[in-house]
Design a protein around this nucleic acid. Structure first.
Lengths: 223, 223
DNA sequence: TAGATTGTTAATCGATTAACAATC
DNA sequence: TAGATTGTTAATCGATTAACAATC
């Protein structure tokens, strides 16, 4: 697997072809590691072993080492992985090292909760705009943002270089916002509603479904 | 695979051993189908084909048919699957056909958004209690619930038969609530914070990480 | 050194998918 | 009947993991 020389890779070096696309499973697991690393860093830890990562992610520790060693020798035997170093490496592998700009739609309770939290900021996303249709909300301050009118969508997307739209609107408004986002050229939509969205094939929709996740978790608990 | 007779299964009959545990992948995919079926039903659709399911889930249509045919002949050739029938069958396969009772922790913006939404109710979860530590919030009405004092946790869990605890509290309070939930005998925790929770092995923690999901989605978009 | 943990091999197991007969 | 779509086969491909040498 891979065409790299079979010896003497320095830590940080990559033994994969550039542009080789990760499999779905590897990309999903790398994202999970990133989450744990981010939290472990916040808690003041400096190194972490594959066994500790395994305890938090429920992913087999051999698989974790294998996933990582496909890209370089990131760890120290007998010690583990340096958290800050590994974080940077995984961000690079996932090509999400830079900051990505997000627009948030819906200034209701969910939208406010998102705007005021660090969940996106912690992973290199900047929420740079907040929109709502309710005229009474325009101009209101929510966390660090000011609520903008929906009609300013296209102009703001272009000016701010927004690549992701996050939908925290009522289900009934989701398709309409999605259509406008597509129109404005945004190609990644993160959908907090349960609405099934119709979008062109080049647009990626990711729907957050806590209840579905919970059903899944519950199955393994009940059986 | 399986020990059932190889002919004449009626729709709804199951050709698997009871108690055979689903693989992680199958359980995850069945949960996804359920989400789409629930929404399609709301939209008034009566039948759905494996190709339509594929378009919404990005799961290969052959795999969908294969996943389903492992449990019975649920579809009609030339027609597709009846949505209400298939929904019931998948709920039965996942053994989540009954209603499960949930306690929600944190009556802040996120907690309120959850309490007032249908996201859990749509999938057979009843949010039956809402707790907060803030004395000023006790007794407050949030959606259909009244905010209870945290000290009533154990008694309420027992009285209401609560099996899942949902954490919508600040990260700094998450571990403390988790400890109390474990103490009260709750063994499934759904964690909306990014805090890494320390729990005994018999307790299942599912952490919701929209930003991590987004990183993952973005990888496939950027490459 | 002794203990710990990585990186890697080798074998197995399950997931995935193209193709197509069956049948509504 | 003709068209559509399921259910199933057969082959491939990738994920998973136990085991252990390498080495910090």
């Amino acid at each position: 697997m891979g065409t790299a020389p079979d010896t003497d890779l320095e830590p940080g070096e990559v033994d994969r072809e550039e542009g080789e696309r990760l499999s779905l499973g590897v990309a999903a697991r790398l994202s999970r590691y990133l989450q744990v690393l981010t939290q472990a860093h916040k808690m003041g830890k400096e190194t972490i072993s594959s066994q500790e990562l395994s305890a938090y992610t429920h992913i087999n520790s051999t698989q974790i080492r294998r996933d990582l060693s496909g890209f370089g020798k990131f760890g120290k035997r007998g010690v583990g992985y340096r958290i800050d170093f590994l974080t940077d490496e995984i961000r690079r592998i996932l090509r999400t090292a830079g900051n990505h700009r997000i627009a948030l739609f819906g200034a209701g309770k969910l939208g406010q909760a998102i705007a005021e939290s660090d969940i996106f900021a912690d992973h290199g996303f900047d929420v740079v705009a907040l929109f709502d249709v309710d005229p009474g909300r325009i101009g209101e301050q929510v966390g660090p943002l000011v609520v903008q009118d929906f009609s300013e969508l296209k102009e703001t997307v272009e000016r701010e270089g927004i690549v992701v739209g996050v939908l925290a609107v009522p289900s009934s408004a989701a398709q309409e916002v999605a259509d406008e986002l597509v129109e404005a050229g945004v190609t990644v939509i993160f959908n907090y509603t349960e609405q099934l969205l119709e979008v062109p094939p080049e647009v990626t929709v990711h729907t957050s479904s806590p209840a579905v996740d919970l059903l899944y978790a519950l199955y393994f608990y009940l059986s």
